[in-house]
Design a protein around this nucleic acid. Structure first.
Lengths: 243, 243
DNA sequence: GGGGCGCATTGACCAACGTCAAATTTTGTT
DNA sequence: AACAAAATTTGACGTTGGTCAATGCGCCCC
C-alpha cells in the first residue's frame, strides 16, 4: 500500500543496458529518443507499490533493477503471487491496451528502479514500429505458457513437489553453486509468498520445509537455503515413480 | 490422436460471419482477400485433433463452428483441459510467432469447422496491418488474465467451489433459462475433463456431483444438468462466510 | 531500548481429497 | 444386436493438507 517512490534521473533509456535485453530492443535510434522523452525513472524501496489493482493504466513500466512482484487478490483478500518481474521486463501494458483497470498489484520486493513510460508514448511507439507490438505479443504468449504450466502443476503435483519445483526455478536466478556440489539460494520472498505461489497455506510450507530438512534435501535459515544435492530436488518433482 | 479431418469448401473467410467477431475483424477488404487466399477450411468430428503438442506450427487456426478443447499433458500423461475455444477464436499463433513447437493439443469436442491459415499468410498480414498483431496481443492478454484468475482460484477455493464456479461459466455458453427460474445446461465435456479443469480427480468430481444432488443444488443426468436456483451455485463459491 | 506488529514455527485435530478396487452404465464398433 | 472399450459411480481406506490456536522470533518505528 505504500507509495512513496522517488524520482531518479540516473536512469535513462538511451543509455540503459537492460534495454537491449528487453522488448524495447526492437526500437531504432529515433524511436529510442522518443521513448526516452516520454519516460521517467523512479526509485522504489522494499514494499513500495508500482501500481495497484483497480487503478486505471497510465502507462507501462520497465524494470531497470531489482525484482517486482505481481500479485492478485481474491474477494476475501487472499493474495497470490503470480509472477516475479526482473530487469528488462515490461509491466502493465494490458491496462494500456484494453483501457481496463489493472488486474494485479505490482510491488517492489527490494530496492528497485522502474521506469514509467506514458500511455501516449507507448501508443506512438506502437504506431511507429509494429515490431514492438509483436514483441509484446511474444512476451505475453510466453507468460501465458508459463501460467498454463503452473495450472498443470497445480492439477497434478503435491505441495511438496510444487515447492521443490519452485526452489529449482528460484535457483536459476538467485542460486549460487559452490565447488563441492552444494548450492545456496537467497529467497527473494517471504514464506507466505512462497505458499501463495504454490497454492498452499503458509503453515503447510513451514512443515514441508521441516521435512526437507529431516530428509536432508534442503536446509533453511531465514531466507537462506542450502541445497546439498540439487538433483534431490529434481527427484522430488516426479509424483511417484513406479518400481 | 485421431487425425482424419476432411477438406470442406463451404467455409470462406470473405463470407464468414464469425470473422466479424474475431481478431480478423481489423482487416480491410484487400487483406480479407489475402486471408481467403491463404486459408483452407476443414470439417472435424468429435475427438479429432486440430494440432498436437510437439508439432511444429504450420499456421494458425480459426474456429468457424463447434468447440475446440485446448489441452496440455504433463510428463506422466495427465491431461489438463486449459481452455475451450469457440467460433471466432484463433488458435496456435504462439507456435507461429516463436517458431517453437505447439505446447498444447487442440481437439474438436464435437462436429466443428476450423479454418487453417498458412504461416506465410499470417506473416504477410501481420506485416501489412499492425492492428492484427495488437488484436492478437489483446486476445492473448485476456487469456493470460483468465489463466491467472484460475491460478488464484486453485490457490484459494475448494474443489466444490471450483466446480460450482465452472458450472456457472459453462452456463454462460451452454445454459438455458426457463420461465420458472430453473436453468438447464448441456455439458460439452466429460466428467474427466471437468475434473482436469478444476484440478481434481474424476472420482472427486463424481462425489461432489452426488453432494450437489443431495443438497438440491444441481441434478445431473449424463451431460444434462438441471439447476433449480442459479444463485445457489454462486453461494457455493464463497469459501466460508463468517456469521 | 522498548513496545508493537507481522512473520514463522509447532501442535492438535479433522475434513477434504487422493488412491485402489470393483461394480455399473454408457458409448462406440463390428 | 452383440460385443468391447471407455466412462462413471460407489465403497473403503489412508494421507495430505487446511484450520485453529499458542508461542517465539525478527524488524521497524517511536
Amino acid at each position: 500500500m505504500v507509495k512513496s517512490r522517488s524520482r531518479d534521473s540516473n536512469f535513462d533509456c538511451v543509455t540503459c543496458i537492460m534495454r537491449h535485453r528487453s522488448d524495447w530492443s526492437v526500437l531504432g535510434r529515433d524511436e529510442v529518443a522518443l521513448l526516452a522523452g516520454g519516460q521517467s525513472s523512479y526509485s522504489y524501496s522494499a514494499g513500495e507499490s508500482v501500481y495497484s489493482m483497480g487503478e486505471a493504466g497510465v502507462g507501462v513500466y520497465c524494470v531497470c533493477s531489482g525484482t517486482v512482484a505481481i500479485r492478485r487478490l481474491d474477494a476475501e483478500g487472499n493474495s497470490v503471487l503470480l509472477q516475479l518481474a526482473y530487469p528488462g521486463d515490461t509491466l502493465g501494458y494490458e491496462a494500456v491496451l484494453t483501457g481496463e483497470p489493472h488486474r494485479c498489484n505490482a510491488e517492489a520486493l527490494g530496492p528497485a528502479n522502474v521506469c514509467h513510460i506514458t500511455t501516449k508514448t507507448v501508443k506512438a511507439l506502437l504506431d511507429n514500429n509494429p515490431n514492438l507490438g509483436l514483441q509484446f505479443l511474444r512476451r505475453t504468449a510466453a507468460s501465458l505458457d508459463d501460467a498454463q504450466d503452473k495450472l498443470v502443476h497445480h492439477a497434478t503435483l503435491s505441495n511438496r513437489a510444487k515447492l521443490a519445483h519452485l526452489l529449482l526455478i528460484l535457483m536459476d536466478r538467485y542460486g549460487r553453486h559452490t565447488a563441492d556440489g552444494t548450492s545456496t539460494l537467497h529467497l527473494p520472498v517471504s514464506r507466505r509468498d512462497l505458499a501463495s505461489m504454490i497454492g498452499a497455506r503458509h503453515e503447510t510450507v513451514s512443515r514441508i520445509i521441516g521435512r526437507f530438512e529431516t530428509d536432508g534435501i534442503a536446509y533453511f535459515s531465514g531466507r537462506s537455503v542450502r541445497i546439498p544435492q540439487v538433483n534431490a530436488l529434481v527427484e522430488e518433482i516426479r509424483p511417484q515413480l513406479v518400481g
